[in-house]
Amino acid sequence: MDGGGAGAGVGGSEGELTAQETALYDRQIRVWGVDAQKRLSKSHVLVCGMNGTTIEFCKNIVLAGVGSLSLMDDHVVTEDDLNANFLIPPDESIYGGRSRAEVCCESLVDFNPMVRVSVEKGDPSLIDGEFLDKFDIVVLSRASLKTKLFINENCRKRSKHIAFYTIDCKDSCGEIFVDLQKHSYVQKKPGGSTEQQELTYPSLQEAISVPWSNLPKKTSKLYFAMRVLEDYELSEGRSPGETTLSDIHAVLARRKDMCDKMSLNESRIPTTLVERLLAAGKKEHPPVCAILGGILGQEVIKSISCKGDPVKNFFYFDVADGKGVIEDIPPPPAN
């Protein structure tokens, strides 16, 4: 289904921005320049999993003026979905019986008539490679580790460059993962000069396979805690967010196993943090959604425009300390 938004006036005849675009995007062109704006208007973004965090992201890039945005989430809207979601009106006669993607799409098309917003039906865990070629950016949220790894590997297999992101909010905590494969960009130096840079990213599989003992002492405890939870959910066949405080003992046992195996002191993953993550379940704290969705929006704009230092390759936010931290998790050493 096409959500509408005719994509009117994308690019002038010679690829120049139209007067309408220049007027609408005036303030942001002053931040990232005309070329970046043109690249944005030609980019295609896929978001799998509609929740309070991804809708923040969607809002940001629709406002920024991407070419198109496709939403994939067949789940029928329930009352739980209303909590952190400003795209779903709390009126059952509107959302009843419809998918999250459909209802969110309907609201998003109004945000910017120059962006084409549409729904892609289907199951993210079955996405095939060819389908991915339609997109420059793929964002996954609240997907199982299995699905994340599957789509990430598929993106990497395509000859086309497809940037891959995951974003998850667990109440007061959040995680973003970024895989830009090989990414060339223009870096702004202090003083105003610029320099061409290239970064090489590990895949998600590589990044989570690195032995913990190899990582620097100051690595965010959220990185480890999220791996424990993810590992537990994978082996128990749970969907993300289905693990709750009643699982605390089993999860703490998993923490011990993993720490023992990878020679990490268990205290690096505090019990209180594990408890908070379990208590969160599927709950999202709206301010954290705004922060994560804002950071991811900026990252995607940086990636499309090839301008500015992108996050490599994890970002964490925790209300408890208020820090928004980048972790550079390398691939495991080759041997």
């Binding site: 002053r30 920024a64 705004a290 969705g293 208020g322």
Partner: peptide, 19 residues
């Protein structure tokens, strides 16, 4: 004196204000 302004920063700042 036009201000450089983007949605993302405003969203992040608004989140931090609420916290």
């Amino acid at each position: 004196n036009i201000v450089h302004a983007v949605a993302t920063t405003n969203a992040i700042i608004a989140g931090l204000i609420v916290i």
